[in-house]
Write a protein that binds this DNA or RNA. Structure first.
Lengths: 238, 238
DNA sequence: GCCATCTTGTGATCCAGGTCACATTCGAGG
DNA sequence: CCTCGAATGTGACCTGGATCACAAGATGGC
């Protein structure tokens, strides 16, 4: 079997092992079978742009594997990253449901497998499968939540250090605890981190240096180690 | 009939005249009748707090009349207003759907009529009424959209003037065009406007003064007049 | 009509962090 | 192993807007 971009494509959702709670595709077999009929599975290379903000919604993309960057850009080129979406998430959901243009730009951070579902197929699917519709509502609600989280970070923080601390703590939940601290794989540049918290690259570099000095956290290559979680937490409840 | 807080309560959704497209309660009669069975209509005075961020979700509130302020507060007391919700909107939707605590605090800006629906009743209702579920998804998607709008304002603006211009332009869509400009009723203090764009009250006062000077917009009492919409638009595409 | 309270207006001060300008280091490809 | 572009580290400078501190209106409760 050919494996474009070095990833395996799983064609049949029913046989797919990835499915787990919280995944959109975690549906009863009957609904899943329906979904299988209307989806198009394919692989995308790193850097692939799935949709661009302002485009009319063509449909949704379910992430089967890989990570996708969701961002928005101002006319003068400043970019803000809203979220890094992972397997199990559905992209373009709000645009597809509301019929309004995509609000964000989606770009693959690494080779990805994505299942595409055309808008009319997807809406029909939701209408006929209350369970899937509720799943969709849950995913939308998760998106809201993460957006609110970001608003809190952008609007209520007193300093960049605080915003960065919030971000690291958010990440810390999906890291592995080791003897020296919580170890997390982040494949993001300082530039991208800056875009996640709405600041400049230089400031991220400086604040990360500060955190290293204070033995709060350490970013080496693409591994982040949280050395002093309570210390970071203390930065956000000033 | 008693009219607490000076507003009429409409008890029967089927007879209610308010219903219009975009309202959650704009449902086929069969579903509406079901909804009617599980809702509790009541009136709230100005300042009433419907729920507080962090509380476990009791259920949703449909706004039949009046306006409700949705906000979040940091530990040190700084408040950010996320949205002013109007008739037809559903409050507490994401918390109720996801089962997570309310993310925001909801407070009546004026006497309101609200219909409350208990969480389990509401979820059952969504499960059995695909049309309502799709409506719910649409409302969640609208919430997302307005959250993304706010993120863009907070994260991509270069100045408070730009943020304020964005806000005024957002408002301008539901104002009346007059010969002198677009007239909008905003019953918000400078303080509240500041909380909507994440800045300080003094700065709002100053920037509004600046806008008045430049004949861009004018806030007198609770009426805002947009004098030069293109001028405001020019502020945000620098 | 009058006070108490909430809002708005304005000046003065100060500093976090944006921006520019480089130096340095890293890492992938030949 | 070398080279080149991308990523990181760091200094210097400057400014928007937060903050404090009042003055002056506006409002409404009695």
């Amino acid at each position: 079997m050919s494996t474009p971009y070095g990833i395996q494509i799983t064609e049949d959702c029913l046989l797919c092992k990835l499915r787990q709670s919280g995944y959109f595709c975690n549906l009863p077999p009957a609904s899943l079978q329906e979904l299988d009929k209307v989806k198009y599975a394919s692989a995308y290379p790193q850097g692939a742009v799935l949709f661009v903000e302002g485009q009319a919604p063509r449909g949704v993309y379910m992430i089967c594997g890989g990570r996708v960057k969701l961002s928005t850009t101002s006319r003068d080129g400043k970019t803000l990253i809203l979220r890094i979406a992972q397997a199990g998430e559905v992209l373009g959901l709000h645009a597809t449901v509301s019929g309004k243009p995509y609000e964000l730009t989606a770009e693959a951070l690494q080779p990805c497998q994505l299942d595409f579902i055309r808008r009319d197929d997807f809406l029909r699917f939701l209408q006929n499968h209350a369970d899937a519709c509720l799943n969709a509502a849950q995913h939308l609600s998760k998106n809201c939540q993460s957006a609110y989280e970001m608003i809190r970070s952008l609007g209520l923080s007193h300093s960049v250090a605080e915003k960065l601390a919030r971000l690291l703590l958010e990440w810390s939940s999906d890291g592995d605890a080791t003897k020296e601290g919580i170890r997390i794989k982040v494949s993001l540049t300082h530039e991208e981190i800056a875009q996640l918290i709405g600041t400049s690259r230089e400031t991220v570099t400086r604040v990360l240096g500060e955190f290293r000095q204070k033995k709060l956290a350490q970013l080496r290559g693409s591994t982040l180690v949280i050395l002093d979680k309570p210390g970071l937490e203390r930065m956000i409840d000033t």
